[in-house]
């Protein structure tokens, strides 16, 4: 592929994914726009229910149906709009162009097939070869994620493996078709910290080797600081701030970003007093008017309740806020 480093390969414009229940509409993703460049890692940070996973599922058109629907916006992958594609066309995209690593390795592997079969199933999508060659490819992809003695591991079933090992297998499957983009949805949240450390290092290594682009979804500020080049902060279905990781950490514009960064307890450095944000994330059936963060925002003024916040550009990144901090 003749794609230069840093060129935009994915462009999301005003994406809206809503869920329709009998009595209400839940605006899980409500008009978000961002792009992804070749070789970079974009982090999407936010609390549970802010729409970060739904954003990822929307990219792959895997939003739970029939309740969930993409109701607006476009997702341009190499200039082609994925929203317009049929199910059959999307199958060519999933795994080969964009693949996903889910949070819980326990539930993303099939318990009744050994991992060799599961790896070969995805490999067979693009490699029309005999079983012997596929087996060899499966071994190679396990070796790539540092599974020891991969030949023997192929026979194992998911229950015979530890959580970290399973997540590595999931990673091997996701990367086996060398997609352009990997979406990692909290891939280490279910793991212990020592295992998490290893998986994170590995993901970084392979991503650099294969020069893939990655969207890394997490609620963990520390993980984001370590693995991403740029981050987008989501709150209540909206992207509230987007910029390079260093800029956002050093000079947050949005009060929510600032609060998120400062509540996070750390084991290093000075022991700062604990702070809390107060309140709870809003219900997306009937989100607050104006800026959705205003009920919890210490800087909120009258206008925040009435009108959608404008985009503020500063220090090389943007946020949507009436009363930017700092």
């Amino acid at each position: 592929m003749a794609i230069a480093q840093g060129e935009v390969i994915l462009e999301v414009n005003d994406l809206r994914t809503y869920f329709y229940t009998r009595t209400s509409v839940v605006k899980a993703v409500d008009g978000i726009s961002f792009n992804l460049r070749q070789g970079e890692t974009l982090g999407i940070v936010g609390e549970s229910g802010c729409g970060k996973t739904m954003t990822a599922l929307s990219l792959l058109q895997l939003v739970p149906k029939p309740a969930g629907r993409i109701v607006g916006g476009e997702i341009l992958l190499h200039g082609e709009d994925l929203v317009q594609k049929s199910e059959a066309e999307m199958r060519q995209v999933r795994g080969q162009k964009i693949s996903m690593i889910l949070q819980d390795p326990q539930t993303s592997l099939n318990p009744v097939f050994n991992i060799g079969n599961q790896l070969m199933e995805s490999l067979a999508l693009t490699h029309k070869e005999g079983r012997k060659n596929l087996l060899q490819r499966a071994v190679d992809s396990l070796r790539q994620v540092n599974v020891a003695a991969p030949e023997r591991r192929l026979e194992d079933f998911p229950h015979q493996m530890s959580g970290g090992m399973k997540q590595r297998v999931v990673g091997a499957i996701a990367m086996s078709l060398e997609p352009d983009i990997i979406i990692a949805d909290e891939p280490t949240t279910a793991l212990d910290v020592i295992v998490q450390d290893r998986i994170l290092r590995q993901i970084k290594e392979i991503q650099t080797d294969l020069n893939m682009s990655m969207i890394y979804i997490t609620h963990d500020i520390a993980v984001v600081a370590e693995v991403t080049d740029r981050i987008g902060v989501m709150y209540a279905g909206k992207l509230v701030e987007l910029g390079s990781t260093a800029d956002v950490f050093e000079r947050p514009i949005h009060p929510y970003t600032k609060a998120l960064l400062s509540v996070f307890p750390s084991i290093r450095g000075e022991k700062r007093p604990l702070t809390t944000l107060g309140g709870e994330p809003p219900n997306l059936v009937d989100p607050p008017t104006g800026c959705r963060f205003h009920p919890r925002c210490p800087y909120a003024t009258a206008i925040c309740q009435q009108e959608e916040p404008p985009i503020v550009v500063r220090d090389g990144h943007w946020a949507a806020c009436w009363n930017p901090v700092g």
């Binding site: 212990d192 020592i194 050093e250 084991i267």
Partner: peptide
């Protein structure tokens, strides 16, 4: 355990974790 805890500071380099194998 301490050195595998991620640090919320972009660009911070933690010392590598030295232990091997799994629990």
């Amino acid at each position: 355990l301490l050195s595998s805890v991620p640090v919320p500071v972009p660009g911070f380099r933690r010392e590598p974790v030295e232990i091997i194998g799994d629990l």
